[in-house]
């Protein structure tokens, strides 16, 4: 019987949608018998906790702690709740928040850690995890040898959970004493990118651009993205050159995405880029080089100059 604790990710007093991927994981991992609970830690935790009471959790723990901005403050609380609540698996979504905190929780608990998993199955009472290695060119199945386990789950492979009805009870819990290290880290602030667009992890359509777009990155891609209510993504080369901000980077070392429709525009299709978007349902590539590797994964390839093709595409879509 697995008893899972999900650590919710908070942003401006709300539970981030990424958290719903951990709920999907918990439902799958607990399918053979088990329960899951969710812990919400931060300022305004009680209100945020109410957002996740409809997903079938045994309980939702609300820890009011406005100082919980760094993992040196959050991890001790999670670890204390794991011990007092008799949980055996801690799950977070492998966002930058999750990747930062999960190993710290694992080390604190002496638990094994399975990072960035893409699947789980119950093998006679033991959880077996699936995870991509070598930029998604192979998948490993692995097991943790410890009784206590920590996992981070891929948002692109665990579809966001839908509410299942019912109302999980919300319980208030106390923050634990922070790590001594907390006194040596000061949170100076989050510079959040201001965007009306959907998040890369949640968008149905993503319009991504590469180095080819140069200074015209936004000028060319925004009209298409606006029309399709798409998130905008970018290759590393486009981010490094400053054509697009770093948080838009899709790939092995950026965001891993799997939308219904992915446009790769002026992107060559390096291994590291493919690792972040190969799971998309339909891939469209626009590139003037017919030999570009991106065409090997594209469902629809258009060999063309993007500066002509994309405005034309916008025009035709507008025309209906």
């Amino acid at each position: 019987m697995t008893n899972i604790l999900i650590v919710a990710e908070l942003h401006e007093g709300k539970v981030r949608k990424s958290t719903h991927s951990s709920i999907t994981f918990a439902r799958q991992a607990g399918a053979a018998g088990g329960t899951f609970s969710i812990v919400v830690i931060g300022g305004g935790a009680a209100a945020a906790a109410a957002e996740v009471t409809g997903y079938g959790a045994a309980k939702v723990l609300a820890v009011e702690d406005p100082t919980a901005t760094v993992c040196e403050r959050i991890a001790p609380t999670v670890a204390a709740l794991v011990k007092s609540g008799g949980f055996d698996v801690v799950a977070v979504t492998a966002s930058s928040f999750g990747k930062d905190i999960a190993p710290r929780i694992a080390a604190k608990l002496g638990a094994g850690y399975a990072p960035d998993i893409s699947g789980v199955k119950d093998d006679g009472g033991k959880l077996v995890y699936r995870r991509p290695v070598y930029a998604g060119n192979a998948y490993a199945s692995c097991r943790l040898t410890t009784a206590l386990q920590v996992v981070s789950v891929r948002q692109s492979e665990f579809t966001a959970a839908e509410p299942s009805g019912g109302a999980s009870p919300v319980e208030a819990a106390q923050p634990a004493a922070p790590d001594a290290a907390a006194a040596r880290v000061e949170f100076l602030g989050l510079e959040a990118a201001k965007s009306e667009r959907p998040d890369l992890g949640e968008a149905r359509v993503i319009v991504s651009g590469g180095r080819a777009l140069k200074e015209k990155f936004a000028e060319v891609l925004d009209p298409l993205a606006n029309l399709l209510n798409a998130a905008v993504g970018a290759s590393r080369a486009a981010c490094d050159a400053g054509y697009a901000p770093p948080e838009l980077q899709v790939g092995q070392t950026g965001r891993v995405v799997a939308p219904q429709l992915y446009f790769a525009i002026g992107i060559s299709g390096a291994i590291q880029h493919l690792a972040g978007m190969k799971g998309s349902k339909v891939i469209v590539a626009v590139n003037k080089d017919a030999e570009a590797p991106i065409f090997q994964v594209a469902d629809y390839g258009l060999v063309a100059d993007l500066f002509v093709a994309i405005p034309e595409l916008v025009k035709q879509l507008q025309a209906g």
Partner: peptide, 16 residues
Amino acid sequence: REVDGGTINLKVTLPA
């Protein structure tokens, strides 16, 4: 720090 959706600025006292 480069994070999803922006940048988080931290000051860490050494050793770190």
